[in-house]
Design a protein around this nucleic acid. Sequence first.
DNA 1: GAGCTGGATGTTTACGTAAACATTATTGTT
DNA 2: AACAATAATGTTTACGTAAACATCCAGCTC
Lengths: 340, 340
Amino acid sequence: MSRQHLVREDRRVSMSDVARLAGVSAQTVSRVSNGNPGVIESTRQQVIEAMDELGYRPNSAARALKRGSFRTLGVILFTLSTTGNVRTLEAIAARAAEEDYAITLIPVSAPTQAGVRGAFSRLNELAVDAIIVIMEVHLLDAATVSLPPGVHAVVVDSDASDGYSVIDTDQADGAQKAVEHLLDLGHETVWHVAGPSASFASERRVNAWRSTLAARDCVEPPLLRGDWSADSGYVAGLTLAEANCTAVFVANDQMALGVLRAFHEKGIRVPQDVSIVGFDDIPDSTAFSPPLTTVHQDFAEVGRRCVDKVLKQMRENSTEPGLDLVPTRLVVRESTARSA
Amino acid sequence: MSRQHLVREDRRVSMSDVARLAGVSAQTVSRVSNGNPGVIESTRQQVIEAMDELGYRPNSAARALKRGSFRTLGVILFTLSTTGNVRTLEAIAARAAEEDYAITLIPVSAPTQAGVRGAFSRLNELAVDAIIVIMEVHLLDAATVSLPPGVHAVVVDSDASDGYSVIDTDQADGAQKAVEHLLDLGHETVWHVAGPSASFASERRVNAWRSTLAARDCVEPPLLRGDWSADSGYVAGLTLAEANCTAVFVANDQMALGVLRAFHEKGIRVPQDVSIVGFDDIPDSTAFSPPLTTVHQDFAEVGRRCVDKVLKQMRENSTEPGLDLVPTRLVVRESTARSA
DNA sequence: GAGCTGGATGTTTACGTAAACATTATTGTT
DNA sequence: AACAATAATGTTTACGTAAACATCCAGCTC
């Protein structure tokens, strides 16, 4: 088809090309292109035909320049290898699409100050109207990294102190539910396999675990740490297998999978010998052996709120610092049982 | 700070504002902004100061309009809930960042023709220079969905017939390795738990399983199907537990997790009674009980090639239809053993 | 049929940037 | 000291679109 050929010509087809072919003015093409009124049907058809013939595609740069907006949100994140980030991102993209906004991904190359700074500096180049930051570590240091002024932003999973809007799962509440569930089953105390100390989310869960134990006058066992990975959970599990432990709260489901493997290997039965509660409620957790009792995080809701909040700020040209917590829900499956 | 206040003013700060404050021309500001030579150090400093003072941020719409490129790639995909998509996307984003390109996500609302068409039509509005399509199902029907003419594209995981560049993991080769590994261990035949029939990847693996069995004159057991989820693997596993089966090739690791659960429940030992091979090599698979023998997919390589290929096409203004296969690797862990 | 109304269409302009070209200042050479 | 040659900076213009304003013409009122 010569259409293909036409299109590959040096310069892209513009409104005036279409206008010339259709025998109308560029403005009329613009009106048709935007579905504006004031164009008689026969003219409209002519223009549409000319558009098809030339393979016209509006130039979004020019549009954005004229309109002052890209209808695009930037999402800064560290990694797509954690369930939470992915699910949140997915929800953000879905909600944004509903509002007719696109999502631009701004990956942070490495979880270092330099990496973060790099991502933020790239922000200046990017065609985004506002940004959502999904941060898992203490690297959003206001001293070194600051958002370009005038850019509206919402931050997920960080401290509320930055002066930006913050949205997060209610980590503390979720952890408390997990620990209380185990204590209510009659366990004397609850061990904890935490995530890395660099993660805010991890630290919140640790604190809640501590205070919940304290509130019930339970002895606090030594804290174990992993890096969120199943393998690190396995290592922690080997330690737990040696310990005199009947109940464990693991800071995410993947590490819980590792703990389960360690227990299987050592002949420790779950939940008969030890009860385990995870965190996240990843889809696979129903297929663990046994299916995992876990704290469900509503990532979809987090994502939705991010988009809603940042769009609201844009529309009202306001900033709304403050923390917005999304509740969790304990999902009881087969990895927990009454203490023997 | 009054800086904040300044910035929130009605109109965004432009080059000429900076130029006025710094007492230079707009062009000089442009030079500083782009790091171009021909600006004396003292002038540069003045300009930078003025930029900071006003909170200047280059307008990327105007830039893109001038340069004729957004330095942005669009990625169309169905879902972020499969490991493969996420890992591929991550690799794409990383490679794109290296090339100084950003990634715009174009989620497909629903895996239907209408959903796909919606995503593709939104393409016109979007500020992207080229696109990468990550498709898992037979919905990229050229009759209903066609890429805007003049837009360079690369497709992951689809048929090579569309006239576009296609990149994919070598599914057939991977499946063959899995089946041969099991046969080499002395198993008489190999069962297969497939993914949904709507998936190209799934069908390729099924075909390779069939032909590998045929090549060795093995009886072909009935085909079982899941939907990629661990739960569906569990259901298939319950069937397998009843069958007279010593070796299973499961089309992805998540379903393999479900099969493992079913076997645990039924007291079937892996690998003593039944050997299992998965596909994907997700990080968690090392923490299954037992750690899973599986076919490693090099998603990172797929992502890299996508970006490289689409950028090459853009630069050369060419189309290169054809299929580009990324090899797989069998990772032997503890879920497979010699037939009893 | 003159004057008016309003819908259809055309013309002008500005959005913010950067390439191309033009001008001015500075330095080195004879 | 006159003059290139070069470096630093300024001016003009175009990118493609859409708002604002201008024009034209058909159909209507009186």
